[in-house]
Design a protein around this nucleic acid. Structure first.
Lengths: 132, 132
DNA sequence: TAACACTATGTAATAATATAACATTTTTAA
DNA sequence: TTAAAAATGTTATATTATTACATAGTGTTA
């Protein structure tokens, strides 16, 4: 059973915005969009983002400094994330492939070291952009 | 045969600094360190970094906004990078594992999409930190 | 070698991303 | 019911990165 996280007011506002966005959102774009809801300062946004990342409700796309909602119902894999990024239209999707996640979670480097967390970003052209 | 890249003056200065550093360097720390060599502005650093990344002499560690020299003599894999990052001491190593790179380069997602580039960052504790 | 394209440089200003520090309030759990 | 933990509010500032514009060097090729 997964731990239930009751989001606080700011966390809820910010999660809802990210969750309904079709594309990753940047912190200051989030800030701009929630100012009418009384969130006025960058730090309020970053604190909510930090928490949401920590509990796995959202992920940060490191190469884009942007945030997307977790696409996996269970949200169990915040320590094992993989994304597909279109270099043309910037569409980002979370990859949910059990073979891949198994392979990476069990990966052992040449020195025998194991890892408790990874983030993988794939780049290419999405179908739409490829056919143009 | 690999294309020969003759580094320009600024590129050489900045590459040499990164190459002899035991840890990833951040852009403004690089700037600070090369000011005695006549590089005075952030943009001069970022331009050199961009070029060095483009030709594969260095890589950006996205989760750290920092840069390390490519550890692979051939520098062929700037489009297929994997790193090990210690969450305690922040030591970063490039992972050069042909099985892993083959697996990821050939990875096909559930929709059949292939990728021409990826970046993977593993997190954990390095040997030294684990034994503490 | 003149003309051209291309790459790199220099400089100032500013945009975009993120955190520090401090005071207060709300929520949770013992 | 109170003490600890989490969240909020606010100001200021630190850090990371780019825009815009002017100039200089390098390599090709006509």
């Amino acid at each position: 059973m997964e731990k239930q996280h009751n989001l606080s007011k700011n966390q809820k506002i910010i999660f809802d915005l990210i969750d309904k966005s079709p594309e990753p959102l940047k912190a200051y774009s989030i800030l701009f969009n929630v100012q009418k809801k009384g969130i006025n300062a960058p730090l309020q946004v970053y604190r909510a983002l930090d928490k949401l990342v920590e509990i796995g409700k959202i992920h940060k796309i490191e190469s884009r400094n942007a945030f997307i909602a977790c696409q996996n119902s269970s949200c169990q894999i915040s320590k094992a994330t993989a994304f597909s990024i279109c270099e043309s239209c910037e569409k980002v999707s979370e990859i949910n492939n059990s073979k891949l996640s198994k392979y990476l979670s069990n990966f052992e480097d040449d020195s025998g070291m194991r890892y408790n967390k990874y983030n993988l970003e794939f780049f290419g052209l999405c179908k739409k952009c490829k056919s143009k």
